[in-house]
Design a protein around this nucleic acid. Structure first.
Length: 570
RNA sequence: GGGCCUGUAGCUCAAUUGGUUAGAGCAGAGCGCUCAUAACGCUUUGGUUGCGGGUUCAAGUCCUGCCGGGCCUACCA
């Protein structure tokens, strides 16, 4: 049995995410996980919240809560939202878990033992009023180049000039506004990525099947300028994984924590341990250690394009540099961005639809279907309420939902709520099975290749084929002269419903479950031979005519939502 | 500034990597059907492939210049 390890980029803890975050990693990862399970793979699908770093501390302060409490609450909120969207994580962990603390410290120790950690003394801006060191972009001041008075310490947003915090005129803390800043000497650990450059380069070159979006970003970092640079992996913060060398203290690093981008990917591994410790499975190392059974695991990661450097370089550098047999990623599926009504989704401006709001106004499957069938695979994609309404109404309500409705209701009116007996498979029926069998092959190949939009289009065309079949078979006409022929056609059409449900479940799991329940076909498996699958419900098999599977989105709702989400979250 | 990606029908996207007449879905138009959520089916309008040069027997595809959009640029994550 193939074994597939799937991770989705872990969402940051500081607030509720918008739909762009969902479609860029978690949702396609879930699609693939559900598909792999349905095909019989052994799957471990992991995700977590990414809880460390300055923004988490600041968000907690803003909420007036201790950071650990804030993160615990937000983790629960995000976990609930994930459930609401049907994200089928085998475990939804936390990067602040004890497992990740231990593992992160372990990796740092292993890297140090291999001579891959250096200590660098550097000057950092410290804010006395805030009582903390400030990352460059949390320092504001006047740009020495253009005079813009809200330039950030890393770059001026107005003239785009790269800056050093010390370049700013009248620098102040972006957090408190305090000008009581000073430059302090502080010591940090660096991961010597330079020493691993050749190994990483060779590894990336071996990934000929990766999307250009992924490899070109990696190669840029490997080859640009002086090549891959060493990277600081510690920070002067309180909230995070304390710096330790394995289980031992690290002299000179007291009070410091690892940089969030060092510990966050390690959480992919720690999450498997959390999964085991939560009693959901055992022997987690057989997913992650090639010396303990992970040799035959295929590992696939999902992420937005902004995350690519960390997953192609920093994290592999950590794994390779440890000298231990950790499983490296086999395939990276990266996504572009989802835009909103001609601009970007904006968390700060409250522009666009946030995940909790999306679930309030419509069932998860509406969002899943639209987002996945428009996944930004080759380009940034645009969400507009008008196309969303049109597409969802057409695809789900008219094509799929109405198919189920017309078939079950016609049957009920002529034979009652059970599969009718009599007649034989018609020529129309045979043609339909052949057509669907060909499309199923296509669909499977697209899902295997994680071609999300294409797979959605193929699936939809299978739904359409059902309507075409009804039109050509016209059982409402044949019933008058030849009720047995009509019965045979309707029997086939009824059998189509569980097949559609199973094939569609990765996209629309909630509706698929309802379809199976109403047809009394809960145990239906992924079909390979459609001739067999389409006689699974025998004559006499009872079913229930489903309630409306997908209610249409009326214009009034669309209009009010478009107004409500145009800016400023309420 | 630099690197990479990108621009195809009103909209969202394709085009087997240089090969016949650039295709789908939606929207629009016409016809049909009456089982169904005013649903379904069939037919159909619509393109100087951002603009200008070039290479080639052949260019949406390769080169070049310009115009527009996006991402990254290593201390946000």
């Amino acid at each position: 049995m193939p074994r597939t390890l799937i991770t989705s980029a872990i969402p940051y803890i500081n607030g509720i995410k918008h739909l762009g975050n969902l479609v860029g990693s978690q949702l396609p990862a879930d699609l693939y996980a559900r598909y792999c399970r349905a095909r019989g793979d052994e799957v471990l699908f992991l995700c977590s919240t990414d809880e460390h770093g300055t923004p988490a501390e600041l968000a907690a302060a803003k909420a007036g809560k201790p950071v650990d409490e804030f993160c615990a609450e937000m983790h629960e909120v995000q976990a609930e939202i994930g459930k609401g969207f049907g994200l089928s994580f085998d475990h939804f962990g936390r990067s602040s878990s004890p497992q990740n603390h231990r593992l992160t410290q372990h990796f740092a120790g292993a890297l140090a033992d291999n001579g891959l950690i250096g200590e660098v003394s550097e000057k950092q801006v410290y804010s006395n009023a805030d009582g903390r060191f400030l990352p460059d972009r949390y320092i504001e001041g006047t740009c020495p180049n253009c005079g813009y008075d809200k330039a950030r310490g890393d770059q001026c947003e107005n003239c785009t000039k790269q800056l050093d915090p010390t370049d700013l005129i009248e620098p102040r803390s972006a957090i408190s506004g305090s000008t009581d800043l000073e430059v302090r000497e502080t010591k940090h650990l660096y991961l010597k990525q330079r020493s691993l450059r050749d190994d990483l380069s060779k590894w990336i070159d071996s990934k000929a099947d990766w999307p250009v979006l992924t490899t070109s970003i990696a190669k840029k970092w490997l080859n640009d300028g002086d090549g891959l640079q060493d990277r600081g992996i510690t920070r002067d913060l309180h909230w995070g994984v304390p710096v330790k060398k394995g289980t031992e203290d690290w002299p000179g690093m007291e009070g410091k924590v690892f940089y969030v981008w060092f510990d966050a990917p390690i959480e992919y591994i720690a999450c498997a341990e959390e999964w085991q410790d939560a009693g959901k499975g055992e022997n987690w190392e057989r997913w992650w250690r090639t010396d303990k059974g992970a040799e035959d695991v295929r590992y696939v990661q999902f992420m937005g394009k902004d995350n690519v450097p960390f997953h192609t370089l920093s994290f592999p550098a950590t794994l390779l540099g440890s000298g231990e047999p950790w499983k490296l990623v086999d395939y990276i599926k990266s996504f572009n961005y989802l835009n909103y009504e001609g601009g970007q989704f904006s968390t700060s401006q409250g522009r666009g639809v946030f995940q909790d709001q999306a679930l309030e106004i419509l069932p998860a499957d509406y969002w899943r279907w639209w987002l996945l069938s428009h996944a930004p695979e080759t380009n940034d994609t645009e969400f507009t309420w008008e196309t969303f309404q049109q597409d969802v109404n057409k695809d789900l309500a008219d094509v799929l939902g109405n198919f189920v409705s017309r078939v079950t209701k016609f049957c009920r009116s002529k034979w009652g709520e059970e599969v009718p007996a009599g007649g034989e498979l018609s020529d129309n029926g045979k043609a339909l099975i052949d057509e669907l069998q060909a499309k199923l092959t296509e669909y499977t190949a697209q899902m295997d290749a994680i071609e999300v939009r294409r797979a959605a289009a193929t699936l939809r065309s299978m739904w359409v084929a059902g309507n075409e079949f009804l039109q050509s078979a016209a059982p409402w006409t044949s019933f008058k002269q030849d009720p047995e022929a009509a019965a045979a056609d309707i029997r086939l059409a009824l059998n189509l419903i569980p097949v559609y449900a199973v094939l569609s479940a990765p996209f629309i799991p909630f509706s698929a479950a309802r379809m199976l329940a109403d047809m009394g076909a809960e145990g239906a498996a992924w079909p390979t031979d459609l001739s067999a699958a389409l006689i699974a419900l025998p004559p006499g098999h009872a079913f229930t005519v489903p309630d409306v599977l997908f209610a249409k989105i009326p214009d009034e709702d669309r209009e009010s939502w478009a107004a409500r989400f145009s800016g400023t979250r309420t």
